[in-house]
């Protein structure tokens, strides 16, 4: 049995019957820890740029920037990286709306870009993000920070900074909800009636 499952019984459930695996305080704590780890790994805040992957990665990147400000007192530039046009499943899914990419002033050339997303799953989003980033410039290094790593990778990709490792079954759904877009902070795991991703 994995640790996440062991904790399950005393965990709250959300209104749809899903299991809450991370509550607000834990999300905040995880982001603070990731902020420290980023600074540690980078030996300071020199050259850091955070790029959030829409939708949930964008507010997470902003929060990470705030956490970095609290720790180090510096303002780390935050951008967004839309990967819609780089997906490998465009021909097998309904047409997706494209979001905006915004590169912070100063660009990404020679910077240490930290990609920020909510859930790391197959790794295909990150693959698309790397391609998208290459079209915007040439960072000195690219790192990956995710709030939840739920396993089931389909590509040789791993995260550098993880909020929580969450072993899941394929059929389960992991939903990250954030105050900015969903009214409250929580990570919920649920088993929809056989749909899944």
């Amino acid at each position: 049995m994995c640790p996440a499952r062991d904790q399950a019984p005393q965990r709250a459930t959300d209104e749809t019957g899903g299991r809450v695996v991370l509550a607000q305080a834990e999300i905040a704590r995880a982001l603070r820890r990731i902020a420290h780890e980023i600074l540690e790994g980078n030996k300071g805040s020199e050259g850091l740029v955070l790029m959030g992957i829409p939708t949930r990665g964008v507010p997470l990147a902003r929060r990470l920037s705030e956490a970095l400000h609290d720790v180090e007192g510096v303002d780390i530039p935050v951008g967004t990286l839309d990967i819609t046009m780089y997906r490998d499943d465009l021909r097998s899914q309904p047409v997706r709306a494209m979001e905006r990419s915004e590169v912070p002033d100063g660009g990404v050339d020679g910077k240490v870009v930290v990609l920020v997303d909510d859930v790391l799953y197959s790794g295909r989003t990150v693959r698309a993000a790397l391609d998208s980033l290459a079209d915007l410039g040439r960072p000195r290094a690219v790192r990956l920070a995710v709030l939840v790593d739920r396993g089931h990778r389909e590509l040789p990709i791993r995260a550098d900074y993880v909020g929580k490792n969450l072993p899941t079954a394929h059929a389960e759904r992991v939903s990250v909800r954030l105050a900015e877009s969903d009214g409250a902070d929580e990570v919920v795991i649920s088993t929809p009636g056989g749909e899944g991703r």
Partner: peptide, 23 residues
């Protein structure tokens, strides 16, 4: 509206150095 909204994001590509999407 969907075509027009997507065009807003496409417009951003016009100002990049590398004007290319693999779509």
């Amino acid at each position: 509206l969907e075509i027009l909204d997507t065009a807003v994001s496409m417009h951003e590509v016009q100002h990049r150095d590398v004007k290319k999407l693999p779509t």
